[in-house]
Design a protein around this nucleic acid. Structure first.
Lengths: 359, 359
DNA sequence: CTGATGGTTGAATCTAACA
DNA sequence: GTGTTAGATTCAACCATCA
């Protein structure tokens, strides 16, 4: 809990991960080297050379070496994660299958795989394959059936025009102003991710003030998005040049204030109002009759907030389930009371009590 | 080369694969068990039960067992493939990482991973994850830099409105008339794939007359698509009931003549842009204020794309309607942001994101 | 015949707080 | 730990029925 808002560590990912305490971070976002095996130079149809990933940090001798590397950093991430924490990894077909299998072997529990559909991918110049137009992210918890992970379902739904957010996200590549350049004007980092991608990841799976760890920090996209959304971050980066660019970039980011990072909350987080309180407040009287939406069933309200239908008695939920012979029922939306304008769900009475409590 | 046009073998996949000669088939398409690990029953909000995959063939004791199974059948497929042949496997996040890693371990060379985006997936009923809206296919050759594999680049480009076919394919689930039913009218097979998916796979990566092997034949989607497109097929299926249905189904298929191979066009529609994506893209920031055209109402933007006016919160459309006490409102034209030249409707920001996505 | 309405369904690792 | 209970939760297609 004691981490400052911003931490950038210069050093080897694995070595620095080992120095972090157990169960100390809320989220890991990792964009590890892809283990690309590109033979020779790739030429466009006009014979210009494609600026592909050929940095030293992206070369591994074999799958065994890559697997050992993957297992080592994932193991440390799992140790460092809080029990209710989660991890994201992004990759392409070159490495994501190995990363995913290693995750599972280490006990991580996959929640979703997410497809980042690139709206403007690089074409396949030679016409030998399908345009490689997506990358894959894996979202996983520390273990199966562990403590509750953070998923801001309602915020995601709100961000998607009130439809559930799906596992395929269409976002443009990081280009233009956002793409960091070096002194010569060339792109500073070969695989800089768009901030919009991190925005969605962070908004979906963290809360304000959470600590986000990025063991392959690069030019700090995770840090920039975290700062913008009022989250803390720890970034580990081996290359001094990248770390420097990240520091400069993040310094320019204006952090959100506490009230700016408030998002649509879930109903589950609202204070619980027992049905008896509706009766206590006089919004319904003992003896009043409730109906389902079509008026097929009628139930009588008792002074203690229980309902009676013939021989059946119990909570609004239990009686609702029993009259339908259903395994469960949300009594708040199932039962209705008579108004001048017709039947209205008793949930509006709950909302009335809640707003009185808030005032 | 001597295979007949249609072969359906009743038996265990691995045992029957072992009986096939070396280097005898042009393409393998495999839809192996996904090794889903489901808990108890899943109920929809209307209390109806989801018909889950609970068949014996999808139960494995552990990842080790599943990996051994995967390695065994993939090894045989590789032996049976011609040197210029290729293999496709379909799976979900439950198994695809293990399949992909095993492929690579056996020496297969991945050409693409393909995302099947489902236009009508099952929602996530409990609001606990992102809607699982896709499955993944892997396309691989026998080995790196081997003999030239078949890729009908121009046919794919033609099928995609003269644009290179991308690695993400949007196709509906197999439902309606196409979905095979048993005597009781229930679905005959829990995981029948759409023929359109196989159509594209076969059209992309085989030539007329090629031999296509499907070691998990099920109700014969691969056979039906192969026959329709003038390719030969070998299907291996353990369940007599499935094999029988496959035979009946394929008997009804009318093979296309060489010059009438149907190419499925792809419908392109303007992408829907949720308001949340405007915030993700950084065109508006959390805390920014929007106004109606006369500046009578002001609303604050939140990070998830919801708006806040006083106690009211919700989507741009809902909040717009509420402040006007109107039944509905188009938030895109109602809300404006401040620019140097005065107020501008947020619809111009949507246009900007659209053009980024189209670029 | 047409359009509106209601019911069904799909490879799903699908609750959380409290006693 | 475990058991109980409150109460939250769905999208696009296809099909049958009926006005």
């Amino acid at each position: 809990m004691g981490f400052p808002a911003e931490t950038i560590i210069l050093g080897d990912s694995l070595e620095e991960l080992k120095k972090l305490p157990d169960r100390s971070v809320d989220l890991v976002f990792a964009d590890p080297p892809y283990n690309l095996q590109l033979g020779g130079d790739l030429l466009r149809p006009d014979n210009s050379k494609v600026d592909a990933v050929d940095d030293d940090w992206d070369r591994f001798e074999s799958f065994e070496t890559y697997d050992a590397f993957t297992k080592a950093w994932l193991f440390q991430c799992r140790r460092v994660l809080k029990d209710d924490g989660a991890l994201w990894v992004i990759g392409s077909y070159h490495n994501i299958f190995r990363v995913g299998a290693t995750l599972q072997d280490l006990g991580f529990w996959i929640l979703n795989d997410i497809v980042w559909r690139k709206s403007n991918p690089m074409p396949n110049f030679k016409g030998t394959r399908f345009t490689n137009a997506h990358e894959t992210l894996i979202w996983a918890t520390k273990s199966r059936g562990g403590k509750r992970y953070t998923f801001n379902y309602d915020a995601m739904k709100m961000a998607n025009d009130e439809l559930q957010m799906r596992s395929d996200w269409t976002l443009p590549l990081c280009t233009g102003e956002e793409r960091l350049k070096d002194e010569t004007g060339a792109k500073a980092h070969p695989t800089q991710k768009p901030e919009a991608l991190l925005h969605r990841v962070i908004l979906a799976s963290t809360r304000p003030g959470d600590v986000i760890l990025d063991p392959f920090f690069g030019t700090g996209t995770t840090g920039a998005a975290a700062k913008r959304l009022g989250r803390r971050f720890i970034g580990i980066e081996r290359e001094e040049a990248y770390a420097k660019l990240a520091r400069q970039r993040i310094a320019k980011v204006i952090p959100a204030t506490a009230d700016e990072v408030v998002i649509t909350g879930s109903k589950k987080s609202e204070p619980r109002i027992p049905f008896g309180q509706i009766v206590e407040a006089g919004l319904l009287r003992p003896g009043d009759v409730l109906y389902d939406d079509k008026g097929r069933h009628a139930a009588r309200v008792r002074a203690d907030g229980s309902l009676v239908v013939g021989e059946l008695a119990g909570s609004i939920h239990k009686v609702g389930a029993m009259v339908q012979s259903a395994p469960a029922c949300n009594g708040w939306t199932y039962w209705h009371f008579k108004t001048d304008a017709g039947l209205a769900p008793i949930d509006v009475l709950r909302a009335k009590v809640r707003s009185q409590l808030a005032a």
